[in-house]
Computed example of a mutant assay.
Amino acid sequence: MDAIPWHAGISVVVLTYNRRDTLCWTLRHLQGLPERPRIAVVDNGSTDGTAAMVRDVFPQVVCLRSDTNLGAAGRNLGAQWAAQVAGTPYVAFCDDDCWWQPGSLARACALLDAYPAVASLTARILVGASGKEDPTSTLMSRSPLPSADLPGRAILGFMAGATAFRAEAFLAAGGYDERFFIGGEETVLAWKLAAHGWRMVYAPELVVHHHPSPLRDSRARRALLARNAVWAAWLHLPATMAIGDTVRAMPSLAMHLGVAGWRELAHGMQWVLRERAVVGDHVVAALRLTRRQR
């Protein structure tokens, strides 16, 4: 029988791909948390020995290995594990180059227990050794959305690698769509949650530390962000807003998307338009309000 007093309320899921050494550092931080959460690593088909490292160095960490790189959708495997195997109602996500501050997971559980209409709590992100606040955290703290009776500012989105979820809400909304791969993948899931009446909250009393890995392809990420913005807009927004989002994405598309990328964008529009389902007026109104702020 497992003698470790695992925290019964929340599990931590870490998404990784070919960043074994960075992941090792992150897991040491997570295993030292006073909450003693169950931890799972979703290995997106790494080829650098990540799975073997987890098995040999962190035998108490579950490794959920995918044969292929699922991108952000790999987190779906982690959410299913948390709900169905670990048996925790809440799941906290982080990437392989960030970790939750001691005490934040316990506080997240208390807030989710106290606010049953809240699906997600996004933590304040502190970057690097200096602990400078991430600009997105600053923006979320100024959200103009009505926030009465919530444990923080209401937001229409979240940061995928710094958010604790109610597992049932995450899974019922379908999690992340594999076709978006990565880059702005939170957008569609956030709109779906809002459409189903769930609230999303920025809770700065929760903290995640982010030490960005140098192993990242910024150009590819910018291309995916622009492509995904167009797909998301035509999938769920009114035509006038979708046209505007497409126009705004064009400079980035022109700069970062190669021939293959343009072909993929056009091909993807087929399933986007086939599955197009415009979100409700309350979601559109909230989105307009947040965009006016920006």
Score class of each variant (00 low, 15 high):
residue 106 A to H: 11
residue 294 R to T: 09
residue 179 R to D: 11
residue 96 D to N: 06
residue 102 P to A: 06
residue 134 D to G: 03
residue 64 L to S: 08
residue 252 S to G: 14
residue 197 G to K: 15
residue 217 D to C: 02
residue 174 G to L: 12
residue 269 M to S: 03
residue 108 A to R: 08
residue 6 W to G: 07
residue 131 G to H: 12
residue 113 D to Q: 12
residue 39 I to K: 02
residue 217 D to Q: 01
residue 141 S to C: 02
residue 134 D to I: 02
residue 137 S to R: 09
residue 221 R to E: 02
residue 125 I to T: 15
residue 212 P to C: 03
residue 284 V to T: 14
residue 243 I to R: 14
residue 205 E to H: 11
residue 159 M to Y: 08
residue 129 A to G: 14
residue 258 G to E: 06
residue 12 V to H: 00
residue 182 I to W: 12
residue 218 S to Q: 13
residue 284 V to C: 15
residue 21 D to M: 08
residue 55 R to P: 01
residue 84 Q to W: 06
residue 146 P to W: 09
residue 260 A to S: 04
residue 176 Y to V: 03
residue 240 T to K: 14
residue 17 Y to W: 10
residue 92 A to N: 09
residue 63 C to M: 00
residue 75 R to V: 00
residue 46 S to Q: 03
residue 113 D to S: 02
residue 237 L to T: 07
residue 252 S to H: 10
residue 25 W to I: 05
residue 27 L to V: 06
residue 122 T to W: 03
residue 273 L to V: 10
residue 151 P to G: 00
residue 196 H to S: 15
residue 224 L to R: 14
residue 253 L to S: 09
residue 160 A to M: 07
residue 200 M to I: 10
residue 60 Q to Y: 00
residue 160 A to K: 05
residue 92 A to L: 09
residue 251 P to T: 15
residue 141 S to F: 05
residue 215 L to F: 03
residue 153 R to I: 03
residue 247 V to I: 15
residue 215 L to R: 07
residue 225 L to W: 12
